[in-house]
Design a protein around this nucleic acid. Structure first.
Length: 379
DNA sequence: AAACACGACAACCGCTTCGCG
DNA sequence: ACGCGAAGCGGTTGTCGTGTT
């Protein structure tokens, strides 16, 4: 025999809350605070159990919760954190300001999990389903798994010491001013203070992981084109020369980004009649200019809030990732560096000068060789 | 138009953990 | 250190709205 639910007492309501009940609960808590949840219903004139009142308040009525559509940034954060933490919804919620664990859990189950599955990514392991892991990948996977364990241990230690993961309910908390993914990366990649209990995580070569995984899961219909760049079938009208320059700059690790973004690039080019008018990048990369000068773009990146540390993703997934999104935005920029036309009519080959290409080659080579100061990203 | 299927998400249940005396 | 009530948590179910047959 299981114990009977708290609301089995006769006369207590269950199920959806009415507007009147909501009003009573909100009014009472706003005036008196919740106090003891067990005692609250009677005081507030509600025929509910305390637990039901608590849930209704925490997940729905509380004034400091955000409702409605999840932003791309939030989605990415959830996916990233889930890769690290699994179904620890309350911990994940602590990194998303004003979202409840219940809402995140629901969103994961109804949207994100399905989307990852559709993309061929196992929503439990966050690894491509179809790709057999090679030995070095297995090592990376082991590292990732190790990191997850390490992160779990660290979070648990943190919880024991300070319980600061609960601070999400305080919107004035300075911790929340960091972007969620930046918090993630700080947690995931900055080593913890020395401890006898916790192992130091192994170094993780993010780009190497990406590269290896990507190279083992290329599209089935690769097409070789002059210059050696691979595109999916049907992409021949894409701004090849632009993407060639991307390939040249980023080399293998970026093939995945460029190829993955082809559909978006095409649709972007096709659908945007006012490509030259600026405002071309929506979402996370609001570059205001329309210059085709990469150096100028780079300077803007440097001076803006766009931060590599915000972009990287430590588990090696190939979509819905901060860094990938950044790279895709980059591709958009490259595509948009003249009249927005693609292929033969694109003068990208002219405006995308050797000088620009060389400039970016050096920027990224430097980036790969020596990470930006203060950046926790393990390039 | 009735029946049915399904997606979205609010709400519940029961177990675990916390906090306090 | 221990016991107990309260709160937290995550898996699961229930309800409702919408689309389809």
């Amino acid at each position: 025999m299981g114990r009977s639910p708290c609301c089995d007492k006769v006369g207590l309501r269950k199920g959806p809350w009415t507007a009147e009940e909501d009003q009573k609960l909100s009014a009472y808590i706003e005036q008196h605070g919740h106090g003891s949840w067990r005692a609250l219903p009677e005081k507030a004139g509600l025929h509910r159990c305390g637990k039901s009142c608590r849930l209704r308040w925490i997940n729905y009525l509380r004034p400091d919760i955000k409702r409605g559509k999840f932003s791309l940034q939030e989605e990415q954060t959830i996916i990233q954190l889930h890769a690290l933490l699994g179904n620890r919804w309350s911990t994940i919620a602590a990194h998303l300001a004003r979202r409840t664990d219940n809402e995140i859990k629901n969103y994961w189950n109804t949207h994100l999990k399905k989307r990852l599955t559709k993309m061929g990514i196992d929503p439990v392991t966050h690894k491509p389903k179809t790709t057999a892991l090679g030995s070095s990948q297995a090592k990376d996977a082991a590292n990732l798994s190790h990191m997850t364990q390490w992160e779990s241990a660290r979070l648990e230690a943190e919880a024991r010491l300070g319980r600061n993961s609960k601070l999400v309910y305080n919107p004035d908390n300075p911790h929340l001013r960091l972007s969620a993914s930046a918090q993630l990366l700080n947690k995931a990649l900055v080593p913890p203070p020395p401890s006898r209990r916790l192992a130091v995580p192994p170094p993780l070569n993010v780009l190497k992981t990406w590269q290896e995984r990507w190279l083992n899961s290329k599209p089935t219909k690769d097409i070789a084109i002059p210059g050696g760049f691979l595109t999916p079938a049907g992409s021949l009208e894409s701004p090849i020369s632009t993407l060639n320059s991307v390939e040249n700059v980023f080399m293998n690790p970026s093939n995945g980004f460029a190829i993955n973004s082809m559909t978006k690039v095409n649709s972007f080019v096709e659908n945007s009649g006012s490509i030259e008018g600026g405002g071309m990048i929506k979402g996370d990369f609001p570059y205001p200019g329309k210059s085709n000068n990469f150096q100028e773009l780079h300077e803007w990146i440097e001076s803006s809030s766009v931060n590599f540390a915000d972009m990287a993703y430590p588990t090696g997934d190939t979509d819905s990732l901060g860094l990938q999104s950044f790279m895709e935005s980059f591709t958009y920029m490259l595509v948009d560096n003249d009249d927005g036309h693609n292929s033969s009519s694109n003068t990208v080959g002219q405006s995308d000068t050797e000088e620009n290409k060389n400039y970016w080659n050096s920027v990224l080579t430097n980036l790969l060789n020596s990470p930006p100061a203060g950046s926790p990203v393990l390039f």
